[in-house]
Simulated assay, not measured.
Amino acid sequence: MAGSGPGKALPVRRRRRRHSQWRGLLYIAPAMALVIVFFVMPVLFTGWMSLHNWPLLGSPRWIGFNNYFRMANDGRFVSALRFTTYYTVIVTIAIFAVAFPLAIFVEKHRRFVGAYRTIIFLPVVVGLASASLLWVWLANVDSGFIGPALKALGLVEKSPNLLATFDSAFFTIIVMVVWKIAGFTMIILLTGLQAIPSELTEAARIDGAGRWQRFRYLTLPLMRRTIALALIISVTGSILAFDQFYIMTSGGPQNRMISVVYYIFNQSFVSFNLGYGAALSIALLAILVVISIVQLRLLRVGEDRP
């Protein structure tokens, strides 16, 4: 029949595909608008601020890349970056060391497993600022709980001030963050464990693979993407740490607990060097992007690429 056939069907398919694409864009338009307004535009404005001497009062003055040159010679920024790196490595290892065994524990079908998951996850719903204030009270030498408990157990002769020295304050903050975050990381890892087909685990067990062999050669490879997600979230959150240091130690003792975000806060809202604070923020964003890319590439090593 004239006017019918593949030649006419092709434009119809193209119109339908184009209509479907426009409909898809319409669905994601609200999310795109939020990203543009609350992320892209602030980042662009921060980049513009970083190229100026931007006082709190008065007119900004264009200085080009001088803020970035100043950053390279800023010893306090280097010290904050060094401390943030040290904190990130320690707290990330501690979180995974606690969260992975917990995920394996609650993944098994046993009595009260739902209650276990709920109890472990409960600290996650507490805000970080509230958790920091809670642990300031717990660590208080006079009215807290930790010091008297250690004394009652005979571990110390008198209640220690856990936030008085760098080592004890750092350890206290690490314990608080692990208590607060490990439940969230556990849930992420739990989803990865539950996505592993039980047939594979059973086949490996029948073939004589031990528990460690199944974990090393089956569980870990199949959880690469899940581990990558949990690792990126943990590392990013640790690099952006601020509340616990500001509330629990105020950057002390001896200003040895000033993280990068804390230093940006001081430069921007204490010293009112808004332009320099913006440059530090852009540098931190670049560091986070590079670290995330490196983590993703390292964790994809050995995967079959399409």
Score class of each variant (00 low, 15 high):
residue 202 E to K: 06
residue 276 Y to V: 05
residue 52 H to V: 05
residue 263 Y to S: 06
residue 110 R to Y: 04
residue 167 D to Q: 10
residue 284 L to M: 15
residue 135 W to N: 00
residue 212 W to R: 08
residue 254 Q to V: 15
residue 233 I to Y: 06
residue 245 F to N: 03
residue 170 F to W: 00
residue 227 I to L: 15
residue 153 L to W: 05
residue 36 I to F: 14
residue 23 R to P: 04
residue 84 T to F: 05
residue 151 K to W: 05
residue 189 L to H: 03
residue 216 R to E: 11
residue 171 F to M: 08
residue 83 F to C: 00
residue 27 Y to I: 15
residue 245 F to G: 07
residue 305 R to D: 09
residue 132 S to C: 10
residue 247 I to D: 03
residue 155 L to T: 02
residue 285 L to T: 14
residue 3 G to T: 09
residue 97 A to F: 06
residue 128 L to C: 00
residue 75 G to L: 13
residue 200 L to H: 13
residue 211 R to N: 11
residue 154 G to L: 12
residue 240 L to Q: 15
residue 99 A to C: 14
residue 288 L to T: 12
residue 192 G to V: 03
residue 231 L to N: 00
residue 189 L to K: 02
residue 162 L to V: 07
residue 292 S to Q: 07
residue 212 W to E: 04
residue 103 A to V: 03
residue 104 I to T: 08
residue 57 L to W: 10
residue 223 M to A: 03
residue 84 T to H: 02
residue 56 L to V: 15
residue 167 D to M: 04
residue 302 G to C: 09
residue 223 M to G: 04
residue 17 R to V: 05
residue 283 A to T: 10
residue 249 T to Q: 03
residue 11 P to R: 09
residue 185 T to A: 08
residue 51 L to M: 14
residue 285 L to V: 14
residue 8 K to L: 11
residue 80 A to E: 09
residue 221 P to K: 02
residue 85 T to Y: 06
residue 267 Q to I: 07
residue 177 V to L: 13
residue 267 Q to F: 08
residue 130 S to Q: 07
residue 262 Y to A: 05
residue 235 V to Y: 03
residue 155 L to W: 11
residue 31 A to R: 01
residue 297 R to F: 09
residue 152 A to W: 11
residue 252 G to W: 06
residue 284 L to D: 03
residue 51 L to V: 12
residue 285 L to P: 05
residue 278 A to G: 04
residue 82 R to G: 06
residue 238 S to C: 07
residue 189 L to E: 00
residue 160 P to F: 11
residue 289 V to K: 07
residue 52 H to W: 03
residue 82 R to P: 02
residue 34 L to S: 13
residue 146 I to M: 06
residue 200 L to Y: 13
residue 248 M to S: 12
residue 261 V to S: 04
residue 282 I to R: 02
residue 12 V to N: 05
residue 71 M to K: 04
residue 128 L to H: 02
residue 258 I to M: 09
residue 37 V to Y: 12
residue 133 L to R: 08
residue 40 V to S: 11
residue 149 A to C: 08
residue 3 G to R: 12
residue 199 E to C: 07
residue 216 R to Y: 11
residue 289 V to M: 13
residue 145 F to H: 08
residue 70 R to C: 03
residue 253 P to C: 12
residue 265 F to E: 01
residue 162 L to K: 01
residue 233 I to M: 13
residue 291 I to G: 00
residue 80 A to I: 00
residue 130 S to V: 12
residue 157 E to Q: 14
residue 129 A to K: 09
residue 8 K to S: 13
residue 30 P to E: 09
residue 263 Y to C: 07
residue 61 R to C: 01
residue 63 I to S: 10
residue 145 F to Y: 11
residue 79 S to P: 00
residue 5 G to K: 04
residue 139 A to E: 04
residue 98 V to T: 10
residue 236 T to A: 11
residue 213 Q to R: 15
residue 24 G to C: 10
residue 216 R to I: 06
residue 295 Q to V: 14
residue 241 A to I: 04
residue 67 N to K: 05
residue 170 F to P: 00
residue 143 S to Y: 14
residue 298 L to R: 01
residue 274 L to I: 10
residue 2 A to K: 15
residue 28 I to K: 07
residue 109 H to I: 10
residue 166 F to M: 03
residue 188 I to V: 13
residue 147 G to S: 14
residue 137 W to V: 12
residue 154 G to F: 05
residue 191 T to W: 02
residue 18 R to A: 15
